[in-house]
């Protein structure tokens, strides 16, 4: 019997789509990557956040120059680029952390689910609940591990009984992969943990208020390789539930944890694309020069 290769191949494809659940990378994304227009807002589908013509000034100095960027649901977007290129500035704009910096001015539009986060009636407190942040250096409160997690839910009235708080603390610590290590010393100070544990505590603290987007500004730069690996594993797990934007100087880390990568240079986005493409065959010469270590 002669096999019809085309028919067989097509039927295999049909079969594969039926078992797509075994392929988390396909099943978890609700977007497609355009192969033709990688540099031009590559994502289709509903973005969680969107930056349109965003420029940021520190007094008269232009730090971010007319940036357009979509941040998609359940993706890890890595922002890379040399120091001073504006990636951290843009990150901080995403939950208006730059509001506290004197002389900082933001133009353009940043939306979270189509809601302008710089609108005059936008309250930054609930905004920062929805868009949480993890900083470069672990910064637990000088309180117990339990209180580090319970403080924000208490402030925002997310729980009222001790049982509810206990549940939030346990769930957050479990999601952050820290529960087994600290469950017997919840009353001890969070500052007594190791650097890697402190950073995971900060992540647990961030997710305790159930945010939608998590911003991470070089979260592993102060950690050893094992602690870094734990955080990266955590990022991969958190992606299933949250949208994550990470600024990192480690291109290896960007390659390991992200689905898309944006390369910044002198305040501009030079290229945005699927991480595999950015690190194997970028479209822009400047990106190629940066990732191959010719400058930066």
């Amino acid at each position: 019997m002669h096999l019809n290769a085309t028919t067989t191949y097509n039927s295999m494809q049909t079969d594969m789509s039926a078992i797509d659940l075994t392929l988390p990378s396909s099943s978890l994304f609700n977007f497609q990557i355009s192969r033709d227009r990688d540099n031009d807002l590559v994502a289709f589908g509903l973005p969680r956040m969107q930056c349109a013509n965003v420029s940021v000034y520190y007094d008269s100095k232009l730090a971010v120059d007319d940036v357009n960027l979509k941040i998609l649901r359940n993706e890890v977007l890595a922002l890379i680029g040399p120091s001073g290129c504006g990636k951290s500035t843009l990150l901080r704009c995403l939950n208006r952390m730059n509001d506290t910096i004197q002389g900082c001015r933001v133009s353009g539009k940043i939306t979270l689910d189509d809601q302008d986060i710089y609108a005059s009636d936008m309250d930054v407190v609930p905004l920062r609940v929805r868009v949480g942040m993890v900083f470069q250096k672990p910064n637990p409160f000088p309180k117990s591990i339990y209180d580090n997690i319970a403080m924000a839910p208490r402030l925002h009235g997310l729980a009222s009984t001790k049982a509810e708080f206990d549940e939030i603390v346990e769930t957050s610590l479990r999601r952050a992969g820290l529960w087994d290590e600290v469950k017997d010393r919840l009353k001890q100070a969070g500052t007594g943990l190791s650097g890697g544990q402190q950073q995971r505590l900060c992540i647990a603290r961030t997710i305790a208020v159930n945010p939608e987007v998590i911003l991470m500004d070089e979260p592993c730069s102060a950690l050893d390789p094992i602690a870094t690996a734990k955080i990266e594993q955590l990022i991969d797990e958190l992606r299933k539930q949250y949208t994550i934007v990470i600024v990192t100087h480690s291109m290896q880390q960007a390659a390991r944890v992200s689905q898309r990568t944006a390369f910044f240079h002198l305040g501009k986005i030079i290229e945005v694309g699927a991480t595999e493409k950015i690190f194997t065959n970028p479209s822009e010469e400047l990106t190629e020069r940066y990732i191959t270590g010719h400058f930066g």
Partner: peptide, 9 residues
């Protein structure tokens, strides 16, 4: 070196 881009290729 963990090569990337054209170096990786």
């Amino acid at each position: 070196r963990c090569p990337k881009g054209s170096d990786l290729r």
